[in-house]
Design a protein around this nucleic acid. Structure first.
Lengths: 107, 107
DNA sequence: TAAATTTGCAACCTATTAGTTTCATAAAAA
DNA sequence: TTTTTATGAAACTAATAGGTTGCAAATTTA
C-alpha cells in the first residue's frame, strides 16, 4: 500500500473538514458521514488515510469506533512551516524598519 | 483550468523541495531542474502550479525568469494550523498541570 | 544574420485518487 | 434467535496528477 504523509493527507478538503470536526470531540464514521455529501464508505476511506499517517487515534466502544485527532502529528506540519516563518518574520521586520525610516525622514 | 489551493500545492514532495530552494534566493527553471531527476518541463509544470496558487512570484530578466517564494501565501497555512496549535498547547498545559499536581503530592 | 539558449505550452501516457456499489462480520436490540 | 445497526474491505470507474516528448517563440551570442 502507498506510504502516506501528512502533506498528502491534508491536501483533500474533505479530510481537512474531518480533521476539524474530530479535533475537539471524537466521532464515529456514521456521525462524520452525516456532515458530507458522500457515502459513509467514502468517509471511511478518508479516515483510513488519516489513520495510515497517524493523524487520528481510535477508541472502540462496542460496535462503534470513535475517531479523534492526534495533534502530535500536526506538529510535523508546524515544524516544516518553521523555516518559512523565520523568513516572513524577518521580512516584516525589514518592512517595519523601512516604515520607521520613512517616518523619521518626514519629521 | 483547475483551481488550486496551497494544500494541494505542498502535497507533492518535488514542489516542497522547490519551495525550499527558492525561499531565500530566486532561481530560474533551468537552475531548479538541475536539482531533480526529471525533465525541465516537468519542473516547469510544478512551478506553474505554485504560480497558480500564488506561492511564487517571478521576475523576468531578458530571456530568463527568476522565481521566488511569496511567503504571504504560506501564512494561510499557518493560519489554518492556528486552530490546532491552540489544542496541542492546551494539552501540554494540562500535562504540565498534572505533573505539577504529582510533584505536589510527593512532597 | 544564423545559431544557440531559455522558456512555456500542447499532446500524450500511466498511475493514483476519490468516489461508487456490493458484501461480510460483529455487536446490539427486538 | 432473528433482525437491525455499525463498520471495514473489495471490486469497479471516472477524473486527475505527474511524468514524457515535441514544438514554437523570444532573447542572446557568434
Amino acid at each position: 500500500m502507498m506510504r502516506r504523509d501528512i502533506f498528502q493527507a491534508i491536501a483533500d478538503p474533505t479530510r481537512r473538514a474531518i480533521i476539524t470536526l474530530i479535533a475537539l470531540n471524537a466521532m464515529t464514521p456514521n456521525a462524520l458521514a452525516n456532515h458530507f455529501d458522500m457515502t459513509r464508505q467514502a468517509v471511511s476511506k478518508h479516515i483510513r488515510i488519516l489513520t495510515e499517517c497517524q493523524l487520528v487515534k481510535q477508541e472502540q466502544a462496542g460496535r462503534e469506533i470513535y475517531y479523534k485527532l492526534d495533534t502530535n502529528k500536526m506538529k510535523e506540519l508546524d515544524k516544516w512551516l518553521e523555516q518559512f516563518r523565520k523568513i516572513w518574520e524577518s521580512r516584516f521586520n525589514q518592512l517595519d524598519h523601512v516604515l520607521a525610516t520613512i517616518k523619521k525622514q518626514k519629521k
